[in-house]
Design a protein around this nucleic acid. Structure first.
Length: 538
RNA sequence: GGGGGCGUAGCUCAGUUGGCAGAGCAUCGGCCUUUUAAGCCGCUGGUCGUGGGUUCGAGUCCCACCGCCCUCACCA
């Protein structure tokens, strides 16, 4: 490369704001930035090819070449065979020993030590090494060697700056501890907390694997509207907005279900959608106002085929994570899919064994000690536990007890399908042929969380419409305002929808399980946070 | 919405019974060519979340508010 063309300083460098409000540490860094400009370098870098991720640079270390160089470097005609690498990363540690500068650089794959000696490093680079601060992005080039204490190190021949950092980094040993700042300032958390980077990268890989799983099985990925004239497919309060061009209220989707089924009607037999869902409800460890779901529909399948897909998918994902995470096994990839277990808090969740299956009725009876059909007992127990029961139909009282007692009795370490929900609770599900009071629906529970339901989809338009009307009859005014009957969906069913299995999974929760994070905020890069109060209002 | 906890230097944290606002790291100035949270010498740095109150005196006690975390409730 030729001399850096920086006779002109960058515009940013010249822009000087009123300095009064600036923190002295920022002020100092601005001065340090000016010092870099003085060297004739742009503090904000430029294109650079050939940069290796740090883990790969480490992997390129050649012990034989390193030893040979150490033993023979003073001999005439010696050829240095140590691999030369280029890495870029943030300066995490910086020790200036005078004529030798030690640094630790971090990128998304890890850390590596850099040594810049006055003797061996290009002069401009050495001066840069002296001028830069913790948190600056640096590019280091040089041969890989080991120090006498065994640390793999790039013995820099050149140093260049990628970006000057005007903000002081978190404490170098404790890191970023403040949970609030970790969520608000994710751009700091990502580099300061390797675990955050690990989870973010794994999430991306997991979603890629989910796509691959369904792509390989001939499903088409589709996109359906987020903005809708009415919110359907689930029972949740939607967000509202205004579409100015049509002077109307629109709702953000609370599910993708009703549009995906329209596609089945149209003749797309296998579809799925991965996308953001918005629900205007409580925020807690398992709920973010916007979250990511996958819904899958398969013509001529049913809830059993969906169960098979789900179990296979989750086992495959768990296997993938186990192989990637267990560093000792990365080389061989040897993790038996049939014995995959992943930690989740205090639990070891077993994804290898066949998932448990239990019917809603069995689970109820096992947990409560009496049958869900025993109305007297059901009502007495609900009253005893202070649950809603007055004015509720029997089946809804049953479900109150089920959620309060039976769901919680499921072994959290064992993925469990709860099968055959009451039809009254499942308005979009086909009733069982021989037991119409039950629906062909299951719900999957892992780690104490509901991961998602699947149905054999209801495709009889008359029954569907009747169920909708029944459901709407019991709604209060507020709910009725945003839950208009989706007549077009009924019309679609009238055109004829093939029998189908349908599935919905909460991807954030799956990522929580697979990456061992107890809060949904830890698997969403930018979880919703109340904005910090400005100076304008209190 | 109820209950509990937290908020102090750029960061990580102490701060006793109400009595001068502290440490480490970082920064800044020196020294140092194999360090590993480098080390040594010296110096900086504060709206104690915000606003009231009690008091001779408040980081500390009281009230209100803001933000975050935990938990219960609501909610799929």
């Amino acid at each position: 490369m030729t001399q850096p063309a920086n006779t002109h300083k960058t515009a940013e460098t010249e822009v000087e704001q009123p300095g009064e409000s600036r923190h002295r540490l920022e002020e100092q860094r601005r001065e340090n930035r000016a010092a870099i400009s003085e060297l004739g370098l742009s503090p904000y870098g430029a294109r650079r090819d050939g940069i290796l991720p740090i883990d790969r640079a480490r992997g390129a270390y050649d012990e034989a070449a390193d030893r040979e160089h150490q033993e023979h470097s003073k001999e005439a005609g010696h050829v240095d065979r140590r691999p030369v690498v280029v890495v870029a990363g943030r300066i995490m540690l910086h020790r200036d020993n005078g004529k030798l500068i030690w640094m630790q650089l971090r990128d998304h794959t890890g850390d590596i030590q850099i040594a810049a000696s006055k003797r061996d490093c290009e002069e401009i680079g050495f001066m840069l090494g002296k001028a830069c601060d913790l948190g600056d992005v640096l590019i280091a080039e040089g041969p890989l060697m080991r120090t006498r204490t065994g640390e793999i190190t790039i013995w820099a021949s050149k140093l260049a700056i990628g970006a000057k950092s005007l903000a002081p980094p978190p404490e170098k040993w404790a890191g970023l501890q403040d949970a609030e700042m970790r969520y608000r300032k994710r751009y700091i958390d990502l580099y300061a907390t390797p675990e955050t980077m690990r989870v973010a990268a794994l999430r991306s890989r997991i979603i890629a694997r989910i796509r691959r799983f369904f792509d390989e099985r001939d499903f088409l990925e589709v996109e359906t509207p987020v903005l809708q004239p009415q919110a359907g497919g689930a029972a949740a309060r939607p967000f509202t907005s205004t579409l100015n061009a049509m002077d109307m209220t629109v709702y953000m989707r609370i599910a993708t279900e009703l549009h995906l089924k329209r596609l089945l009607v149209g003749g797309m037999p296998r579809v799925y959608e991965i996308g953001r869902i918005f629900r205007n409800e409580g925020i807690d460890r398992q709920h973010n106002p916007e979250f990511t779901s996958i819904e899958v529909y398969e013509a001529f399948g049913n809830y059993e085929t969906m169960l098979e897909h789900t179990e296979r998918l989750l086992r495959e994902l768990a296997h993938y994570v186990a192989v990637t995470t267990a560093e000792a096994d990365v080389e061989t990839g040897d993790v038996d899919p049939a014995s995959v277990k992943l930690p989740f808090g205090d639990l070891e969740i077993d994804y290898g064994s066949p998932f448990a299956r239990v019917t809603y009725a069995e689970l109820f009876e096992r947990a409560l000690g009496f049958a869900m059909t025993d109305v007297e007992q059901v009502r007495r127990m609900a009253k005893e536990r202070g649950l809603k029961h007055e004015g509720l139909e029997d089946i809804f009282v049953v479900n109150e007890l089920f959620e309060e007692v039976a769901e919680k009795s499921i072994d959290a370490a064992k993925p469990t399908f709860v099968m055959d929900y009451p039809a009254a609770l499942s308005p979009l599900t086909r009733p069982k042929m021989n037991q119409p009071e039950l629906a062909e629906r299951w719900d999957l529970f892992i780690g104490g969380m509901e991961i998602g339901p699947a149905y054999t989809e209801l495709n009889d338009p008359d029954i569907q419409e009747a169920k909708f009307r029944e459901q709407f009859a019991g709604m209060d005014e507020e709910e009725a305002a945003y839950r208009a009957l989706d007549e077009d969906f009924i019309e679609a069913l009238m055109v004829g929808m093939p029998p189908a299995g349908g599935l919905g999974l909460g991807i954030d929760r799956i990522v929580m399980l697979l990456t061992n994070q107890r809060s949904i905020r830890d698997v969403i890069l930018f979880p919703f946070m109340r904005p910090v109060a400005g100076s304008g209002e209190g």
